[in-house]
Design a protein around this nucleic acid. Structure first.
Lengths: 252, 252
DNA sequence: ACCTGAACACCGTTCAAGT
DNA sequence: ACCTGAACACCGTTCAAGT
């Protein structure tokens, strides 16, 4: 391996970028680029497959280079979580103040977080499971900023301080339960591999002896299996959110 | 290292066990013993520290021996989840049939699962995050048997079949949100290390410049921090469960 | 039948060295 | 200033070999 400088691309790219430059594969590393690539990698291949070494090659660099920008794998994962939460601020449907009432405010926030969960089903479990900076910074609303906005919004709308805190707790646990279930359902095809394949295999292999055994020992399950397999996540989310808002109304 | 047979213990133990035997450290491996030890290890040291090699030495055996009983690390973790769910059946407060009404039945089940989560805060996230055998086997109620019992119980109490399915969905997402938050709060002292230490460090270091910055940028957060830090998990669980039962009542 | 030694491919992370 | 090579300690997993 001669130690040539990084290979130049045919010019086409470089011309588009600027006058002339090292190729786009050679844009310097940065913490932001590393984290964004990590998110994309998790989206594409699942959390399990993400290693410092693979992320390095994904960036056209040796793994050791990453340590200039993140202190280690753990911190990288924390940065991934932060990156995801940051998407909230870029969501134009989400509003930072309850200009149309606290219900509208809360609903927009909930939907914004749901969009993040569904956009990154393989990464969302990180938002749920990473230990937070403080026990009162509860997933999935994990940033100081958004917790402040949430509490301030409710207080501005007439909630007592204790009421706002109680609402924060109810809101987070509602979101966590729903979105974790929904995102795991959405992301099941990539994490442990071949779950999609199994589902199809089921409908052939299982309809043989497997389905019979299910029917024997778990008759109701066998009967309700089609109903259980239907996906009503969206409407359930709306209904539960509605119910939550009624509860919060009572806390006000 | 002479290839002597496994060392005998001083007799005291062996005498208690049977007449005379290889020492208790030499009881043969078994899948059950491996899984139980894995659960204990996770409880004690956290999931991250569990490796096949460490689990081996914990059992007084080389890591390779484990592969006679589990096909790999992934399957071991699945077995851990199964082991935890099995504890439900041994909980004498939990009842398999709604002999005192469906509310009592559902409540006992919820409390039983909560006890498991609180007994194994470091392992419970596995119950939440491991991909299930089927998408309709939702965490944290992950066994065919308990889902069957739940559905059958509600149907026996007058729920329509679709009502029972809807109740199952609402029940699982309620439990998941609450228990994941509660167990992560309970288990924060062991997973990533020194979170307990940080909490104390906070109250000294943070009350300096850190607290001021918090107060400046996030005034409400700074003010409500004590309220947010209080732990009302138990009463919130009861209240939310109560609310859930009312919702289920309406589904009936 | 049950366990192990040796080996393989892969990790995360460090540090001195290269450009 | 930024990246890399080499090295270390540790993984999961396999397979032929030991008892």
């Amino acid at each position: 391996m001669p130690s040539t400088p990084p290979e130049q691309v045919p010019d086409a790219d470089a011309a588009l970028v600027h006058g002339h430059q090292p190729p786009s594969t050679r844009v310097p590393l940065s913490r932001e680029r590393i984290v964004a690539t990590a998110v994309a990698f998790i989206d594409a291949h699942g959390l399990v497959d993400l290693s410092m070494r693979r992320l390095g090659t994904e960036l056209g660099v040796e793994a050791m280079s990453l340590y200039r920008y993140v202190t280690g794998r753990e911190e990288l994962l924390d940065a991934v979580v932060e990156h995801l939460v940051t998407e909230l601020a870029q969501d134009s449907e989400v509003v930072r103040e309850p200009t149309h009432g606290w219900q509208d405010f809360t609903q927009r926030l909930a939907h914004g977080i749901r969009r993040i969960a569904l956009a990154h089903p393989n990464a969302f479990p990180l938002v749920a499971s990473r230990p937070g900076q403080a026990p009162w910074l509860r997933p999935p609303l994990r940033s100081l900023e958004w917790v402040e906005l949430f509490l301030a919004g409710l207080v501005a709308e007439g909630f007592t301080r204790d009421g706002a805190v109680a609402a924060y707790r109810a809101f987070t646990s509602f979101l966590l339960g729903h979105l974790l279930l929904e995102s795991s359902q959405a992301g099941a095809d990539v994490g442990p591999l071949d779950v999609i394949g199994d589902t199809n295999a089921d409908s052939t292999a299982e309809s043989g002896a497997g389905q019979d055994k299910l029917a024997g020992q778990h008759p109701l399950l066998a009967e309700l299996r089609p109903a259980l397999s239907e996906n009503h996540a969206a409407s359930e989310f709306e209904e539960s959110l509605e119910n939550l808002l009624e509860r919060l109304q009572r806390m006000r």
